[in-house]
């Protein structure tokens, strides 16, 4: 019977059904848990990038604000709908005025795309904080762009230095080795052994800031 014509086909079908069945059930059961976890991580990240700006405008420290998730998220953070703008935008509102914006940006790394959240000042020129959402770089190498020392380089950094340029409005950077210290504001430390990934982060920021600034910066007066 094993070698008849129909048996293999029927056998295959049964096995396929059993296993994809098990997988589908497992997946559907876990789906909401996974969704909830992803949403929570994402919202916490947004809150994290905006926390300092909120703390400066209101009371408490950035850490208190981040720890008070989800209450602080719903109290201070609003998502903005803007049909003409192709990115997700959030803003931190304290006492009815906006203190900071947060954009979801994307770019290409060495192995795949990367997404990040960047919070900016209300004139869209200064980066308050950068957080990586998603990246596919090499673990232990490129993936180290998620480490604090690397991301901290972008904290409170004036990024738009040529606001009137029709070309690139951002600061030009050069990379130095991880072990060195920057001598001026146009130097950034790259991750050792991950030049391309480090470059990709800067390229993503520069490209996205050009897009953001040219859209919102010029409309700055229209945004409240």
């Amino acid at each position: 019977m094993k070698d008849s014509f129909w048996f293999p086909i029927v056998f295959m079908l049964i096995i396929v059904l059993i296993f994809t069945g098990i997988l589908s059930v497992m997946y559907r059961l876990s789906e909401s848990k996974i969704e909830a976890y992803l949403t929570e991580t994402y919202e916490r990240r947004i809150l994290g990038t905006l926390a300092q700006a909120i703390a400066d405008a209101d009371a408490g420290s950035a850490d208190d604000i981040t720890a008070a998730y989800p209450e602080s998220f719903h109290k201070y953070v609003q998502s903005m709908e803007d049909k003409g703008f192709e990115r997700k935008v959030y803003r931190a509102v304290v006492h009815d005025s906006t203190v900071a914006y947060c954009f979801e940006i994307g770019g290409k790394g060495l192995w795949g795309s990367m997404r990040a959240l960047v919070s900016t000042s209300t004139d869209f020129r200064t980066i308050y904080s950068l957080a990586i959402v998603d990246q596919q770089e090499t673990p232990g190498l490129g993936a180290r762009i998620e480490e604090e020392w690397f991301l901290d380089q972008f904290r409170n950094r004036l990024f738009v230095v040529n606001p009137d340029s029709s070309d690139d409005v951002t600061q030009k950077y050069e990379f130095i080795a991880e072990a060195q210290s920057p001598v001026n504001d146009s130097q950034l430390k790259r991750v050792t052994g991950a030049t391309i990934t480090s470059d990709s982060v800067i390229k993503m920021l520069q490209d996205e800031f050009n897009y953001i600034y040219k859209y919102y910066g010029t409309k700055a007066n229209e945004k409240d």
């Binding site: 396929v16 296993f19 994809t20 997988l23 589908s24 997946y27």
Partner: peptide
């Protein structure tokens, strides 16, 4: 919307 089965489908 069964993208989560992609590994299995591809390898099959």
């Amino acid at each position: 919307e069964i993208v989560y089965l992609q590994y299995i489908v591809f390898i099959i």
